[in-house]
Write a protein that binds this DNA or RNA. Structure first.
Length: 133
RNA sequence: UCAGCAGGCCGGUCUGUCGCUUAUUGUGAAAACAAUAGGAGGAAAGUCCGGACAACAAAGAGCGCCACACUUCCUAACGGGAAGAUAUCCGCGAGGGUAUUGUAGUGUAACAGAAAACAACCGUCCUGCGUGCAGGAUAAGGGUGAAAAGGUGGGGUAAGAGCCCACCGGUGCUGCAGGCGACUGUGGCAGCCGUACGCCAUGUGGGUUGCAAGACCAUGUAUAUCCCGGUUUCCUUAGGGUACAGGACUGCUCGUCCUGAUGGCAACAGCCGGGAAGGGUAGGUCGCUAAAGGCUUUGGGUGACCAAGGUCUCAGAUAAAUGACAGGCGCCAAACUUGUUUGGUACAGAAUCCGGCUUACAGGCUUGCUGCUUUU
RNA sequence: GGCCCUAUAGUUCAAGGGAUAGAACGGAAGUUUCCUAAACUUCAGAUUCAGGUUCGAGUCCUGGUGGGGCUA
């Protein structure tokens, strides 16, 4: 890593419309309360090991302030803990992840952090399975 | 002091760690890295009005549709704002809400009630006789209703009535005074006068769509569809007028223009050019933020606002940054140990940009004014 | 982001500003039957919310809330 492992530049974010459509059509799901994950492993010789996006449905929170707050907290939790995920992703592959918030209450940072740890713990064996095939 | 009315303003702050984004500078071939500076609001919201800007459309006339409607002013513009006018309702009051074009025409007013506007059910009075009915006169009195035919007093009459008179209220015309004006005050004349809501009429304004507008670059499939023109082959008289249909202006009508088929009549294939429709792409750059800009001083105006001078540059993201965590301070509430603990700290997040309106909002500051009751 | 539409019983729809907001299906109770179905009788159940206009709003006007659509 050229930069500090806690940075979160644009190339680690999922922002191409094509890739998002691919992720939601072909990706697999995983629950880790209060978020739901959607993930897909694709071939990518260059670039960052993972790309992710965070989503809070408008149906749960009508006000944009609350949606922004949750999305920012989730992003911080991902940014500070992504190193433990990156070590498990093999060379030449790229992981696309979408985090979708499910609760209808605004939860604090620590519960988001716990959810993130739990999600990574669940995700690593799944990645091994896929790569083994 | 307390309660209240009208207006204006603010709406947390500091430190540390790790991040995001824009600009500039430096290093570097580039990717990138480093430093410095900036990085949500009074409503950024609802998308309700008005503009700027952009694309498309546009010979014109009439009608329709939508919005607005007292006066003077402000403004780029407005359905917004300021200062007023009149009427009415609420409040003790400071004040607040609503309405306002119309001497034309026309409609409706459930139930109840005699009657909802060319009004006789009861009543009152007159006449007739068969003495309780018929014919008339009459809006003074009467239960109903949201609303009942100007009000009070006098004259008058068979009984009554703007039938007549005086005063008052209102309407129309008009003289004088004040005001830029709506209008106000006051005098004269006239006709004697209901209320509410519509339709309708009059005047003014409105082309449509919206930055996902639009411009450029990149990526990229197929000439498989349709039309027109030219040319080659084959077939075939050619050109014009009239009516019909469709389309555009346009929501409708007229009108204008264009096209089509019919008017005796076309067909097939290849190539070239143009157009339509369809398919594909979903990346980037511009638009994009220096503006009807902010702050401030002076002057003008009752005010909205305007003029002149000075000074400043103040978000530009694009699956979308402006943050997360920890601690301190401030503010509010409760508890008691009276200076500690515990809890809370609003509404809410730019998406092309401005001017308004509306709605949400913990708490606080400030200017002017009011007070029936209450305290000093 | 921009531009629009809409809201009536549990569901699908009605209702010229004027009695208690109507109909169908569904629900509940009863009659009939040995029991069920069918049939018949009865009942319950609604104008998205807050203001305003009006004597009187489901309807007219204003604002909020919810639901839905279109747009490269």
């Amino acid at each position: 890593m050229k930069k500090s492992s806690y940075s979160f530049p644009k190339e680690e974010r999922l922002c191409l419309k094509k890739q998002i459509a691919q992720l939601f059509e072909q990706g697999e799901s995983l629950m880790s309360y209060p978020v739901r994950l959607k993930y897909l492993l694709v071939d990518a010789p260059e670039g960052s090991p993972a790309k992710c996006l965070f989503s809070v449905p408008k149906k749960l929170f009508k006000r944009a302030v609350k949606r922004n707050l949750i999305r920012r907290r989730l992003r911080e939790a991902y940014r500070l803990h992504k190193a433990e995920l990156y070590s498990n992703i093999p060379e030449g592959k790229q992981l696309l992840i979408a985090f979708i918030y499910l609760d209808n209450k605004v939860l604090d940072y620590t519960s988001g952090e716990n959810a993130m740890r739990k999600a990574f713990a669940k995700l690593t064996p799944q990645i091994r399975n896929i790569t083994a095939k």
